[in-house]
Simulated scan of single mutants.
Amino acid sequence: MGGPSRKATVMAENDLERLLGGLLGDSPEGSGVGRLLASLFSEVGDSGQGGGNPLQGLVNELDEGGLAAKVRSWIGLGDNEPVSGPELAQALPYQVLDRVAQQGGVSPEQAADRLAAALPQVVDKLTPEGQVPEGLL
């Protein structure tokens, strides 16, 4: 019939937020960035870019936005190339970054900076075998 209830969706987003924040450690920044990451994964997952896999959707979105080499370094087994907030902001559709920022209670620029600081580490940890797992998240 309909999709998942709003309560179920919020619970899933909270679980994802805790998972992603936990990848960053127990720092105070981890929980706030976890919320931004969960929102970002939700936004790109809803876009259909990853065929139901939010991580693949994010990879596809960033590849199309010109960050393919950096994203490949995060997925691969070598060193992770850094990305700046402005680079990330340019790679993502503005409406995606705007919605993520709104959900996180920050400006789009702050969201981009915080996500840029966290994404290399998070994507690296979500891809321990050097490739995007199927059905992740």
Rank of each mutant, 00 (worst) to 15 (best):
A8N: 11
R6C: 09
A91M: 04
V71F: 00
P120V: 00
G22A: 10
L115K: 01
A89H: 05
M11P: 04
G3F: 12
G85L: 07
G130V: 08
V59Q: 02
Q103C: 08
T9R: 14
G104K: 02
L119H: 00
Q110Y: 04
G48L: 12
Q121M: 09
E29N: 10
Q90L: 13
L37H: 05
V59G: 00
G30D: 06
G45T: 03
D98T: 12
D15I: 15
V33R: 01
M11Q: 15
R72T: 00
V96N: 07
S107F: 11
L40G: 02
A68R: 06
L136V: 13
A111H: 02
A111E: 00
E64H: 14
P108G: 03
L67K: 02
R6N: 10
L16E: 01
A68Y: 02
A38S: 15
R114D: 01
S5E: 12
S5K: 11
L97T: 03
P82L: 04
I75N: 00
G34V: 06
N60A: 14
D26M: 12
L119Q: 00
L115M: 09
E17F: 05
T9K: 14
G21V: 03
L67C: 07
R99E: 09
P4M: 15
S107Y: 10
E64T: 13
N80F: 00
S27P: 07
S47Y: 04
A8G: 11
L16R: 09
L136M: 12
L77T: 15
R35V: 09
D15H: 11
G78K: 09
Q49W: 10
P133G: 06
Q49I: 06
